[in-house]
Structure formats: C-alpha cells, structure tokens
C-alpha cells in the first residue's frame, strides 16, 4: 500500500473561498491534514463543513485559494482529475445509484492511476459481510446502514488514501455507528488519512486526532485530541453540544 506513515502533509488548504452561484459559502478556509491522521470538521449546519469537502473536489461553483493534495496544487483541475491524486469521497446523501446493483455500485469508482492498490473485493466483503450477501440487490433497496457501508466501501477499492467522509453516522442505528467507528480505527491503523464531517460529536470525539471548528465559512477553532477536555466549554458554546 502506498500510504506513508510519516508526518508529511496529505492535504493543505490555504485561503479557500467557494461559491454556489451567487452565494459565497467559504470565506478563506485554512486547513492542514497530515498523512495517516483522522481530522474532524465540527460546526453547526450551514457552517461550511460539507462545502469544504465538496470544494476540495471542485463540486461547488467557483473556487479561489489553494488546495494542495500531497503537495500538488489541484485548485485549477477539473473534478474528474482530482480523484486521481488519491481522493475518495463519500457524500452526505451517500449517492448510491438505484440503476446499479450493490456490487456494481461497489465496483463503479475506477481504480486510481498512480495510486497503490486498494482493498480487494474479498477483503471488503470480509469487512462488510452484509454487502456480500446483498451483492445482487438493487443499490437503493439496501437498508440505510448497508447503503452507508456501501458508500464508504466503494472508495476503499480504488487506492484512494485521502478519504473525505461526510456525516457517515447520520441517522443510523447505534450498532451500525459502532461498526463504522471500528472501521475508521481500522482504516487509521492501515495508514489512511481521513477527513470527517460529523454532527455526532460522541461518534467523532474518540476517533479524531485533531479537530477543526467552522463557523460562517471559516475555521474558528483548531485543537488536538489531547486538548479536547479543556476546550469543551468553548465547544459547548460554538456547537451547543
């Protein structure tokens, strides 16, 4: 696997601004993620966390600033080229395709050029036995939890090592949320770099190495997991957790 465990920078964002049509959603985001780290973006709804993930992939409208992935500037690249720098994206709405079977969904994202081999289909099915069982079902016939597993599993196959996961615990039963937490720990062990957007603070808190807090399209707080205890009062005020 081409995942480095050293402390080099997997993702470096400087002065990122983004728009949806006329509406200005990101007002200069600065953010660094080191290889092998799990970083969580916290914030209220509409603070710009999802927009930050989408802007990394060029899924917003206009973008300005700098987004370096493993040192390569990607701000001017078209969306379809950005994934090939090793980015895997799991959208908030999961994006399971209804005209594809479970397995077709799993096999859809192409293996990325120039990246190391991702997980094999067997490895993925061993990790998510439900998906193996339902491989021939229509993608959208799967339960919410299964769809979420599918949405994450399909980007593990491609060799992507920078995973952008948007609200993966949202609306799922506690037992499935636990399974996802276990999966994130396993991914971290394997050396993946993960950027998570999470509403569920209790899910994110024990997993992340560092936290960024967003408000009004900007980063307003930034601290490491060890400082979490001290920062709780500030967080309570910012997030209402």
């Amino acid at each position: 696997m081409a995942v480095s465990s050293s402390k080099d920078v997997a993702l470096s964002i400087r002065g990122l601004q983004a728009w949806y049509g006329e509406s200005h959603v990101l007002h200069g985001v600065d953010l660094d993620v080191h290889s092998g780290e799990v970083v969580t973006l916290l914030g209220r709804n509409g603070a710009g966390r999802t927009s930050t993930l989408r802007a990394i992939l060029g899924l917003t409208g206009d973008r300005k600033g700098s987004i370096k992935i493993r040192g390569y500037e990607t701000i001017n690249l078209p969306t379809y080229q950005i994934a090939h720098y090793g980015v895997g994206y799991c959208p908030e709405e999961r994006g399971i395709f209804s005209s594809l079977s479970c397995e077709e969904n799993l096999l859809l994202p192409p293996v990325l050029k120039g990246m190391g081999a991702g997980m094999g289909l067997d490895e993925i099915y061993a990790m998510f036995p439900n998906l193996a069982e339902r491989r021939n079902s229509q993608g959208t016939r799967l339960s919410g939890g299964e769809q979420q597993m599918l949405a994450v599993a399909r980007i593990l196959r491609t060799g992507a090592n920078l995973l952008l996961l948007d609200e993966i615990s949202e609306g799922l039963a506690p037992v499935i949320v636990q399974a996802l937490a276990k999966m994130i720990r396993m991914l971290k062990q394997k050396g993946y770099t993960v950027v998570m957007v999470e509403q569920n603070f209790r899910f994110a808190a024990p997993l992340a190495d560092r936290f960024y807090v967003m408000e009004h399209g900007r980063i307003v707080e930034h601290f490491a997991a060890a400082q979490l205890e001290d920062r709780m009062p500030v967080l309570k005020e910012l997030l209402g957790v």
Partner: peptide, 22 residues
C-alpha cells in the same frame, strides 16, 4: 454501461470518483 447509468443519475458524483464525464 454502469458508468453511463450512474452518470444518468448523478453525473457530478461519478466525476468526483475520477471518471471523465464530459
């Protein structure tokens, strides 16, 4: 064909996976 069907449903996401949708 799977690319085509997926592209019909959600072209932006297929593009985000690294497929040259244009």
């Amino acid at each position: 064909g799977a690319y085509l069907r997926a592209g019909t449903e959600n072209p932006r996401l297929v593009e985000a996976f690294g497929v040259n949708v244009p």
